[in-house]
């Protein structure tokens, strides 16, 4: 089995606050799944449980075999390393230096930053820094890519462009992607399936299958079906929010 499966994951912090309650879902190999919800609904926490950075208090987790990579909210580049050296870092850490420089060049080419290989992070724009971060995550050929609101700090135009680039990379490398966001149209544009989450405690409120075929072009965002689906997801988020508030 190369799918990602969680079974009844729950997490209660030592202070008694329940961050996640009974979260179960499954996503197949090479699928694109988004976790959508307002801040505080535990979606980043869930992502960190999948990454085994946090242990759940209850439940179990099955991950696909192979490498895992994580793209953080901030680019999280090391300022003393050049772009090339930043992308190379995961290979250094796993002492996988064979063909490292070709692999790094290939990744820089893919994200369109070949000519910035020797620049330092502070010389790049926010969007370019995020591209470096993506290149670094993909350099190890991960089978599972976890993304924690990676484009949240970018302007809308850059964000949309990076969404399209991410899809291209996904279709090329066929990794399983779990994407955390609070942006409805971003989740719809990217995903095959969206889990709407609600806060206090974080749980899955509703699951949406997104029917649009890949490759998805930017015109998709202007279609009526797209708008309709975004509306349905927004309603679901608000409904879940009210539901949670009523039980608080």
């Amino acid at each position: 089995m190369n799918s990602l499966t969680t079974q009844s994951l729950s997490l209660t912090f030592p202070n008694g606050v329940e961050a996640l309650h009974d979260v179960s879902f499954s996503c197949g190999e090479s699928s694109f799944l988004s976790l959508l919800g307002p801040s505080g609904c535990g979606k980043s926490t869930l992502l960190r449980i999948i990454a085994e950075l946090i242990k759940p208090t209850e439940g179990s987790l099955q991950r696909p075999a192979g490498e895992l990579s994580f793209v953080f909210q901030a680019p999280t580049l090391l300022p003393w390393r050049t772009v090339r050296k930043n992308v190379q870092l995961p290979l250094e850490l796993s002492r996988n230096t064979r063909e490292a420089s070709e692999r790094v060049n290939e990744m820089l080419e893919l994200v369109g930053l070949r000519q910035f290989a020797n620049a330092y992070p502070h010389e790049l724009s926010g969007g370019m820094q995020m591209r470096v971060s993506l290149a670094r995550a993909l350099v190890t050929r991960p089978r599972l890519l976890l993304l924690d609101e990676p484009f949240g700090a970018l302007d809308d135009i850059t964000r949309q462009r990076l969404n399209e680039e991410l899809l291209t990379l996904w279709q090329r490398d066929k990794f399983t992607a779990v994407f955390v966001t609070h942006n409805v149209s971003e989740a719809v544009f990217l995903s095959q399936r969206v889990l709407v989450m609600t806060p206090r405690p974080g749980r899955i409120h509703e699951i949406f299958d997104i029917p649009f075929a890949y490759p998805r072009e930017r015109q998709l965002r202007a279609s009526a079906e797209f708008a309709q689906l975004c509306g349905a997801l927004s309603n679901s988020i608000n409904e879940g929010h009210e539901h949670a508030a009523a039980h608080a």
Binding site: R48, A51, L68, F70, T76, L78, L89, P90, S94, T140
Partner: peptide, 26 residues
């Protein structure tokens, strides 16, 4: 150290020595 940088090193299973020489000291 930036907590996300620590997580990055943890995800790629960095050793204590790697965390020291490639993250803490720089």
């Amino acid at each position: 150290i930036d907590p996300q940088a620590m997580e990055l090193f943890a995800i790629h299973r960095a050793t204590r020595w790697q965390k020291l020489t490639k993250l803490r000291i720089p």
